[in-house]
Design a protein around this nucleic acid. Structure first.
Lengths: 129, 129
DNA sequence: CATCTGTTATATATATAGTATAACAGATAA
DNA sequence: TTATCTGTTATACTATATATATAACAGATG
């Protein structure tokens, strides 16, 4: 899977990496058990420091998006750390509040917003159907 | 309008301030033309530095959420800087992609996600009805 | 005149992000 | 065994972001 990094972005590189891997899993570009490049390999490919990749992998490992074996290397996983739905949705609500407020005040209709959500969901659901 | 700041949050204070003011406008707690406290006053009330508030106001001014008059002070505005809907929605799409991917992989159903959006929209629409 | 306003400038302290170099222990292959 | 690769950890450095502190300026107000 190709990573598209923007080095002038205000989003940290390690966050861009971990984000795109999670999205890659949702899209089906990365499948359970698939091996990811080593920290040194990916760092070399991208042209960044090893520790930046290591931080991204550490975040993914922490959340359960990858498992790391001495033998097999870094493997894609969907064995997520348990988190109650209401906690996840609560955090999501907080995250979305400002964006929804801005959209509302800009005259974006409710259905336009939800349509955007549904389209992205379909991108993911299409990957496993 | 009361601000609820979390000083241990990873979200900068100035961002928490500007976010909550935008949400306050959407909820109808702040209305067009309403005067906001001066940078020194708000800083004093909250117990933070003047420049932190000034940075928040600067962001709001930049986007068009407030206008600043020598005479009248800092006024709530909804005279937003022109931005094409497709640009706003494109940025929104990027912002939501990871959250939607996570929700999808956690088994949150599409309708649960959109329901969350609709509920927040209703909070805002209720404020002006 | 005194006071308040937004704004700007400068300085400092701390945290974060990214890089650089090095080392360790486990696994792998020659 | 030797050599190489793995994730991991440690240390150090630079750059940037965040927040604070102090000061000053020009416009407006009473």
């Amino acid at each position: 899977m190709l990573l598209h990094l923007e080095f002038e972005s205000n989003i940290p590189i390690y966050k861009q990496i971990s984000n795109q891997i999670v999205v890659g899993i949702a899209k089906g570009d990365l499948v359970e058990g698939e091996e990811l490049p080593s920290v040194r390999q990916m760092a070399s490919d991208i042209g960044i420091n090893m520790h930046t990749v290591n931080k991204a992998y550490g975040i993914l490992k922490q959340a359960g998006w990858v498992t790391i074996h001495r033998k097999k290397g870094v493997l894609v996983s969907t064995n997520l750390k348990a988190q109650e739905d209401y906690l996840f949705l609560g955090a999501l609500r907080d995250l979305l509040e400002v964006s929804i407020a801005e959209a509302f005040l800009r005259g974006i209709k409710k259905c336009e917003f939800t349509k955007l959500i549904e389209e992205k969901y379909n991108e993911f659901e299409g990957g496993i159907s």
